[in-house]
Design a protein around this nucleic acid. Structure first.
Lengths: 165, 165
DNA sequence: GGTGAAACTTGGGACAG
DNA sequence: CTGTCCCAAGTTTCACC
Protein backbone atom coordinates (compact mmCIF):
# COMPACT_ATOMS: atom_id res chain seq x y z
CA UNK A 1 0.00 0.00 0.00
CA UNK A 2 2.38 2.69 -1.18
CA UNK A 3 0.29 5.80 -0.50
CA UNK A 4 1.62 8.74 -2.44
CA UNK A 5 3.31 11.49 -0.52
CA UNK A 6 3.26 15.03 -1.78
CA UNK A 7 5.87 17.65 -1.09
CA UNK A 8 4.14 18.78 2.11
CA UNK A 9 4.10 15.24 3.53
CA UNK A 10 7.80 14.89 2.84
CA UNK A 11 8.48 18.22 4.51
CA UNK A 12 6.48 17.09 7.55
CA UNK A 13 8.52 13.90 7.80
CA UNK A 14 11.78 15.83 7.42
CA UNK A 15 10.82 18.33 10.12
CA UNK A 16 9.64 15.67 12.58
CA UNK A 17 12.74 13.59 11.98
CA UNK A 18 14.84 16.63 12.89
CA UNK A 19 12.67 17.65 15.86
CA UNK A 20 10.08 15.14 16.99
CA UNK A 21 8.71 17.32 19.79
CA UNK A 22 7.81 20.27 17.58
CA UNK A 23 4.27 21.49 18.28
CA UNK A 24 1.72 21.05 15.55
CA UNK A 25 1.30 24.81 15.04
CA UNK A 26 5.05 25.28 14.59
CA UNK A 27 5.13 22.34 12.19
CA UNK A 28 2.18 23.75 10.24
CA UNK A 29 3.89 27.12 9.96
CA UNK A 30 7.08 25.52 8.66
CA UNK A 31 5.38 23.41 6.00
CA UNK A 32 3.16 26.31 4.97
CA UNK A 33 -0.37 25.10 5.83
CA UNK A 34 -2.69 25.69 8.77
CA UNK A 35 -2.70 23.52 11.86
CA UNK A 36 -5.75 21.21 11.42
CA UNK A 37 -4.85 19.73 8.01
CA UNK A 38 -1.26 19.47 9.20
CA UNK A 39 -2.34 17.38 12.19
CA UNK A 40 -4.52 15.20 9.93
CA UNK A 41 -1.52 14.57 7.72
CA UNK A 42 0.67 13.65 10.69
CA UNK A 43 -1.96 11.15 11.94
CA UNK A 44 -2.27 9.67 8.44
CA UNK A 45 1.51 9.32 8.17
CA UNK A 46 1.60 7.61 11.56
CA UNK A 47 -1.20 5.20 10.66
CA UNK A 48 0.30 4.41 7.25
CA UNK A 49 3.53 3.48 9.02
CA UNK A 50 5.72 6.21 7.57
CA UNK A 51 6.29 7.34 11.15
CA UNK A 52 7.04 4.35 13.36
CA UNK A 53 7.53 6.25 16.61
CA UNK A 54 9.13 9.14 18.45
CA UNK A 55 12.18 8.86 20.66
CA UNK A 56 14.29 11.09 22.87
CA UNK A 57 17.95 10.82 21.93
CA UNK A 58 19.83 10.24 25.18
CA UNK A 59 23.55 10.71 25.72
CA UNK A 60 24.83 7.20 26.34
CA UNK A 61 28.24 8.24 27.69
CA UNK A 62 26.84 10.82 30.14
CA UNK A 63 24.46 8.16 31.40
CA UNK A 64 27.35 5.85 32.19
CA UNK A 65 27.42 3.70 29.07
CA UNK A 66 31.09 4.17 28.34
CA UNK A 67 31.39 1.31 25.88
CA UNK A 68 29.89 0.98 22.42
CA UNK A 69 30.85 -2.04 20.36
CA UNK A 70 30.13 -3.40 16.91
CA UNK A 71 30.12 -7.20 16.83
CA UNK A 72 30.34 -9.13 13.55
CA UNK A 73 28.76 -12.54 14.01
CA UNK A 74 29.06 -15.61 11.81
CA UNK A 75 26.73 -18.58 12.31
CA UNK A 76 27.50 -22.25 11.64
CA UNK A 77 24.13 -22.85 10.00
CA UNK A 78 22.25 -20.27 7.95
CA UNK A 79 19.00 -22.22 7.73
CA UNK A 80 16.08 -19.82 8.14
CA UNK A 81 15.06 -21.34 11.49
CA UNK A 82 18.62 -20.88 12.79
CA UNK A 83 18.72 -17.28 11.60
CA UNK A 84 15.44 -16.40 13.32
CA UNK A 85 16.53 -18.26 16.46
CA UNK A 86 19.60 -16.04 16.63
CA UNK A 87 17.53 -12.91 15.97
CA UNK A 88 15.20 -13.85 18.83
CA UNK A 89 18.19 -14.14 21.13
CA UNK A 90 19.40 -10.69 20.10
CA UNK A 91 16.02 -9.15 20.82
CA UNK A 92 16.19 -10.58 24.35
CA UNK A 93 19.67 -9.15 25.13
CA UNK A 94 19.36 -5.58 26.41
CA UNK A 95 23.01 -4.78 25.64
CA UNK A 96 22.31 -5.42 21.96
CA UNK A 97 20.63 -2.29 20.57
CA UNK A 98 20.65 -3.17 16.87
CA UNK A 99 20.86 -6.44 14.96
CA UNK A 100 21.16 -6.39 11.18
CA UNK A 101 21.39 -9.44 8.94
CA UNK A 102 23.98 -8.90 6.22
CA UNK A 103 25.07 -10.45 2.97
CA UNK A 104 28.69 -11.52 2.49
CA UNK A 105 31.13 -13.28 4.77
CA UNK A 106 29.60 -12.13 8.05
CA UNK A 107 25.98 -13.03 8.89
CA UNK A 108 25.00 -10.35 11.43
CA UNK A 109 26.28 -7.07 12.72
CA UNK A 110 25.28 -6.05 16.24
CA UNK A 111 25.57 -2.63 17.80
CA UNK A 112 25.98 -2.95 21.56
CA UNK A 113 26.00 -0.42 24.42
CA UNK A 114 27.45 -1.42 27.81
CA UNK A 115 28.34 0.46 31.03
CA UNK A 116 31.97 -0.66 30.93
CA UNK A 117 34.35 -3.10 29.32
CA UNK A 118 33.95 -5.79 31.92
CA UNK A 119 30.16 -5.93 31.58
CA UNK A 120 30.57 -6.17 27.82
CA UNK A 121 33.14 -8.95 28.22
CA UNK A 122 30.72 -10.80 30.50
CA UNK A 123 28.05 -10.52 27.80
CA UNK A 124 30.48 -11.57 25.07
CA UNK A 125 31.93 -14.62 26.76
CA UNK A 126 28.93 -15.56 28.86
CA UNK A 127 26.06 -14.98 26.42
CA UNK A 128 27.07 -14.35 22.82
CA UNK A 129 29.94 -16.82 22.40
CA UNK A 130 28.12 -19.60 24.25
CA UNK A 131 25.00 -19.28 22.10
CA UNK A 132 24.28 -22.37 20.06
CA UNK A 133 25.20 -22.04 16.36
CA UNK A 134 27.44 -18.97 16.81
CA UNK A 135 30.63 -19.83 14.92
CA UNK A 136 32.64 -16.62 15.00
CA UNK A 137 32.48 -13.18 16.62
CA UNK A 138 34.72 -10.23 15.84
CA UNK A 139 34.28 -7.16 18.01
CA UNK A 140 35.40 -3.56 17.45
CA UNK A 141 35.21 -0.87 20.10
CA UNK A 142 33.89 2.52 19.06
CA UNK A 143 36.63 5.08 19.73
CA UNK A 144 34.45 8.07 18.87
CA UNK A 145 31.29 8.88 16.94
CA UNK A 146 31.80 11.35 14.10
CA UNK A 147 28.23 11.34 12.81
CA UNK A 148 25.01 9.89 14.16
CA UNK A 149 22.04 11.19 12.16
CA UNK A 150 18.61 9.57 12.38
CA UNK A 151 16.80 7.86 9.53
CA UNK A 152 17.31 9.06 5.99
CA UNK A 153 18.29 12.15 4.03
CA UNK A 154 15.29 13.98 2.61
CA UNK A 155 17.66 15.94 0.38
CA UNK A 156 18.57 12.67 -1.33
CA UNK A 157 14.88 11.81 -1.63
CA UNK A 158 14.01 15.14 -3.30
CA UNK A 159 16.95 14.75 -5.71
CA UNK A 160 15.79 11.27 -6.58
CA UNK A 161 12.22 12.46 -7.24
CA UNK A 162 13.48 15.36 -9.35
CA UNK A 163 15.49 13.11 -11.66
CA UNK A 164 12.66 10.55 -12.02
CA UNK A 165 10.18 13.31 -12.97
CA UNK B 1 29.73 18.17 35.11
CA UNK B 2 28.19 14.83 36.03
CA UNK B 3 24.96 15.94 37.71
CA UNK B 4 23.47 13.16 39.76
CA UNK B 5 20.29 11.55 38.52
CA UNK B 6 17.79 10.07 40.89
CA UNK B 7 15.40 7.26 40.14
CA UNK B 8 12.72 9.65 38.84
CA UNK B 9 15.15 11.25 36.37
CA UNK B 10 16.13 7.84 35.05
CA UNK B 11 12.46 6.88 34.68
CA UNK B 12 11.81 10.11 32.76
CA UNK B 13 14.68 9.35 30.38
CA UNK B 14 13.48 5.78 29.89
CA UNK B 15 9.92 6.89 29.14
CA UNK B 16 10.96 9.64 26.74
CA UNK B 17 13.36 7.31 24.96
CA UNK B 18 10.47 4.90 24.41
CA UNK B 19 7.96 7.61 23.45
CA UNK B 20 9.37 11.05 22.83
CA UNK B 21 5.99 12.63 22.08
CA UNK B 22 4.36 11.69 25.36
CA UNK B 23 2.59 14.66 26.93
CA UNK B 24 4.07 16.05 30.10
CA UNK B 25 0.99 15.15 32.17
CA UNK B 26 1.17 11.53 31.01
CA UNK B 27 4.90 11.45 31.75
CA UNK B 28 4.30 12.95 35.20
CA UNK B 29 1.67 10.31 35.94
CA UNK B 30 4.01 7.51 34.91
CA UNK B 31 6.93 8.68 37.00
CA UNK B 32 4.66 9.41 39.99
CA UNK B 33 4.97 13.19 40.45
CA UNK B 34 2.81 16.13 39.36
CA UNK B 35 3.23 17.89 36.04
CA UNK B 36 5.19 21.09 36.91
CA UNK B 37 8.17 19.47 38.69
CA UNK B 38 8.18 16.84 35.95
CA UNK B 39 8.53 19.50 33.27
CA UNK B 40 11.27 21.21 35.30
CA UNK B 41 13.19 17.94 35.38
CA UNK B 42 12.80 17.43 31.65
CA UNK B 43 14.13 20.94 30.94
CA UNK B 44 17.06 20.35 33.30
CA UNK B 45 17.87 17.03 31.62
CA UNK B 46 17.77 18.73 28.21
CA UNK B 47 20.03 21.57 29.33
CA UNK B 48 22.49 19.21 31.03
CA UNK B 49 22.79 17.29 27.75
CA UNK B 50 21.27 14.01 28.91
CA UNK B 51 18.62 14.52 26.25
CA UNK B 52 20.26 15.57 23.00
CA UNK B 53 17.08 15.82 20.92
CA UNK B 54 13.83 14.25 19.84
CA UNK B 55 13.30 12.49 16.52
CA UNK B 56 10.50 10.86 14.61
CA UNK B 57 11.52 7.36 13.52
CA UNK B 58 10.67 7.16 9.82
CA UNK B 59 10.32 3.97 7.79
CA UNK B 60 13.24 4.12 5.36
CA UNK B 61 11.98 1.35 3.07
CA UNK B 62 8.44 2.76 2.75
CA UNK B 63 9.97 6.12 1.88
CA UNK B 64 11.86 4.57 -1.01
CA UNK B 65 15.21 3.95 0.64
CA UNK B 66 15.48 0.31 -0.36
CA UNK B 67 19.15 -0.06 0.38
CA UNK B 68 20.96 0.03 3.71
CA UNK B 69 24.66 -0.72 3.73
CA UNK B 70 27.42 -1.03 6.29
CA UNK B 71 30.79 0.07 4.90
CA UNK B 72 34.04 -0.81 6.66
CA UNK B 73 36.67 1.76 5.73
CA UNK B 74 40.43 1.56 6.16
CA UNK B 75 42.63 4.62 5.73
CA UNK B 76 46.21 4.77 4.49
CA UNK B 77 47.24 7.28 7.17
CA UNK B 78 45.78 7.37 10.67
CA UNK B 79 47.30 10.72 11.64
CA UNK B 80 44.77 12.74 13.63
CA UNK B 81 44.44 15.35 10.87
CA UNK B 82 43.71 12.61 8.33
CA UNK B 83 41.11 11.02 10.61
CA UNK B 84 39.26 14.28 11.14
CA UNK B 85 39.50 15.08 7.41
CA UNK B 86 37.73 11.80 6.66
CA UNK B 87 35.12 12.45 9.37
CA UNK B 88 34.39 15.87 7.87
CA UNK B 89 33.82 14.22 4.50
CA UNK B 90 31.38 11.75 6.07
CA UNK B 91 29.39 14.55 7.70
CA UNK B 92 28.99 16.16 4.27
CA UNK B 93 27.68 13.00 2.55
CA UNK B 94 23.91 12.71 3.04
CA UNK B 95 23.89 9.00 2.21
CA UNK B 96 26.13 8.36 5.24
CA UNK B 97 23.90 8.39 8.32
CA UNK B 98 26.43 7.22 10.90
CA UNK B 99 30.21 7.24 11.07
CA UNK B 100 31.99 5.54 13.95
CA UNK B 101 35.74 5.36 14.44
CA UNK B 102 36.77 1.88 15.57
CA UNK B 103 39.77 0.13 17.04
CA UNK B 104 41.25 -2.90 15.29
CA UNK B 105 41.92 -3.65 11.65
CA UNK B 106 39.23 -1.39 10.22
CA UNK B 107 39.31 2.36 10.93
CA UNK B 108 35.68 3.42 10.40
CA UNK B 109 32.30 1.83 10.05
CA UNK B 110 29.64 3.76 8.10
CA UNK B 111 25.93 3.09 8.05
CA UNK B 112 24.46 4.26 4.74
CA UNK B 113 20.90 4.60 3.43
CA UNK B 114 20.32 4.93 -0.33
CA UNK B 115 17.22 4.85 -2.58
CA UNK B 116 18.55 1.96 -4.68
CA UNK B 117 21.65 -0.04 -5.44
CA UNK B 118 22.75 2.11 -8.36
CA UNK B 119 22.71 5.33 -6.35
CA UNK B 120 24.72 3.59 -3.64
CA UNK B 121 27.20 2.31 -6.23
CA UNK B 122 27.54 5.85 -7.59
CA UNK B 123 28.34 7.07 -4.08
CA UNK B 124 30.76 4.20 -3.47
CA UNK B 125 32.77 4.46 -6.68
CA UNK B 126 32.33 8.19 -7.27
CA UNK B 127 32.72 9.57 -3.74
CA UNK B 128 33.97 7.14 -1.12
CA UNK B 129 36.57 5.20 -3.11
CA UNK B 130 37.97 8.31 -4.79
CA UNK B 131 38.45 10.12 -1.47
CA UNK B 132 42.07 10.86 -0.68
CA UNK B 133 43.60 8.54 1.94
CA UNK B 134 40.87 5.86 1.68
CA UNK B 135 42.80 2.61 1.33
CA UNK B 136 40.12 -0.08 1.55
CA UNK B 137 36.32 -0.33 1.66
CA UNK B 138 34.31 -3.46 2.35
CA UNK B 139 30.55 -3.14 2.00
CA UNK B 140 27.75 -5.38 3.29
CA UNK B 141 24.13 -4.97 2.31
CA UNK B 142 21.54 -5.20 5.06
CA UNK B 143 19.21 -8.09 4.23
CA UNK B 144 16.83 -7.40 7.08
CA UNK B 145 16.74 -5.62 10.42
CA UNK B 146 15.98 -7.88 13.39
CA UNK B 147 16.30 -5.24 16.08
CA UNK B 148 16.65 -1.47 15.98
CA UNK B 149 16.20 -0.02 19.47
CA UNK B 150 17.21 3.53 20.31
CA UNK B 151 19.91 4.55 22.77
CA UNK B 152 20.58 2.40 25.79
CA UNK B 153 18.88 -0.12 28.07
CA UNK B 154 17.70 1.44 31.32
CA UNK B 155 17.27 -2.08 32.73
CA UNK B 156 21.02 -2.55 32.40
CA UNK B 157 21.60 0.83 34.05
CA UNK B 158 19.41 -0.01 37.05
CA UNK B 159 21.14 -3.39 37.43
CA UNK B 160 24.50 -1.67 37.32
CA UNK B 161 23.47 0.85 39.99
CA UNK B 162 22.05 -1.88 42.20
CA UNK B 163 25.30 -3.87 42.22
CA UNK B 164 27.46 -0.77 42.84
CA UNK B 165 25.31 0.25 45.82
C1' DG C 1 7.78 18.64 45.26
C1' DG C 2 2.70 20.63 45.09
C1' DT C 3 -1.18 24.20 43.81
C1' DG C 4 -3.77 27.26 41.09
C1' DA C 5 -4.28 30.21 37.07
C1' DA C 6 -3.13 32.20 32.52
C1' DA C 7 -1.58 31.29 27.79
C1' DC C 8 -1.20 28.17 24.47
C1' DT C 9 -1.97 23.83 21.87
C1' DT C 10 -4.73 20.07 20.35
C1' DG C 11 -8.24 18.30 17.78
C1' DG C 12 -13.18 18.48 16.46
C1' DG C 13 -17.21 20.64 13.68
C1' DA C 14 -19.10 23.55 10.17
C1' DC C 15 -18.20 25.45 5.90
C1' DA C 16 -15.80 27.47 1.42
C1' DG C 17 -13.14 26.46 -2.78
C1' DC D 1 -11.01 16.03 -0.98
C1' DT D 2 -8.11 19.64 1.12
C1' DG D 3 -7.68 24.07 3.34
C1' DT D 4 -9.64 27.85 6.59
C1' DC D 5 -12.01 29.61 10.65
C1' DC D 6 -13.65 28.95 15.15
C1' DC D 7 -14.27 26.82 19.73
C1' DA D 8 -14.13 23.57 23.74
C1' DA D 9 -11.11 20.47 26.24
C1' DG D 10 -6.72 19.48 27.60
C1' DT D 11 -1.76 20.81 28.13
C1' DT D 12 2.10 23.65 29.16
C1' DT D 13 4.26 26.71 32.05
C1' DC D 14 4.21 30.57 35.12
C1' DA D 15 4.33 32.66 40.09
C1' DC D 16 3.90 31.20 44.68
C1' DC D 17 3.77 28.09 48.83
Amino acid sequence: MPMRLDQIDRKILAELQADGRMTNVELAKRVGISAPPCLRRVRTLEEAGYIKGYHAEVDARELGFEVQVFAMVGLASQAESDLTAFEDRCRAWPLVRECHMLNGEVDFILKCAAPDLSSFQRFLTGDLLTTHNVASVKTSLVIRVAKDDPGVSFDVLEERLAETA
